[in-house]
Design a protein around this nucleic acid. Structure first.
Lengths: 112, 112
DNA sequence: AATATATACATAAAATTCTTATGCATAAGA
DNA sequence: TCTTATGCATAAGAATTTTATGTATATATT
């Protein structure tokens, strides 16, 4: 996604959180939103995004609705109940990851 | 390493930072230190650690010194000049990652 | 004395996630 | 007309990690 390898594993968290805020979004919209929010720091590639969306749908975390807008197809995704729960989990995991890494990298921050 | 996939890509950062503090460490010691600091949250597997150490050595970021202690071999690693520089880079990347993710996940934090 | 656990290294197959490359199609701008 | 933007999709390859396995010595337990 970016030059930093740290983003590996964060894509699902990002997708779920965005859908949690926006109610429904389509793939291309997600890539643009992420570029915008991160000031071009993070560019989600289509090769990563679309397979990920398909997987989340297959797992029952997302529902799809296909709409035709301006003669072009858009696949709108939205969180299912299960997806909303998983969003909470993923966000907690992110916070935990950050805490743990801080403890490793900054010895002043110790975990209890 | 842990159940959370977010740690993917963080191993090198962790290794370099620990070596930056401790001057020289051997592989097994690193696994134990990490378990200790993270209160068992993160357990670095040998299958990930050893190949990673070899790679860092091949790239000229680490130097090795083999010592025999209590009739057992230990391969002590320490940062080279280049390794020390790369540590700075990796730590900056981590801080940047955290900032970017905060912006994505918490809309109140905006990047400039 | 025998067995299990801890210490210490190593590698290889498989899984996971992502990049890069490619393909199709329509709309809008230069 | 040609390029860029919009919108989806997949497949080959790269990179990193998990899981499994192997070797060997030291220490603790039964």
């Amino acid at each position: 996604m970016s030059n930093a390898k740290l983003y590996k594993g964060s894509l699902v968290t990002i997708i779920l959180k965005l859908l949690n805020e926006h109610d429904k979004m389509y793939g291309y919209e997600i890539t643009q939103r992420v570029k915008e929010i991160t000031k071009n720091e993070l560019k989600i590639t289509e090769g990563a995004l679309y397979p990920s969306l398909h997987k989340l749908e297959a797992e029952g975390l997302l529902d799809v609705e296909v709409l035709k807008v301006d003669n072009r197809l858009r696949k709108y995704y939205k969180l299912t109940e299960k997806g909303t729960q998983e969003t909470v989990n993923k966000l907690a995991e992110l916070e935990n990851y950050i805490k743990t890494m801080r403890a490793l990298v900054n010895p002043k921050f110790r975990l209890e």
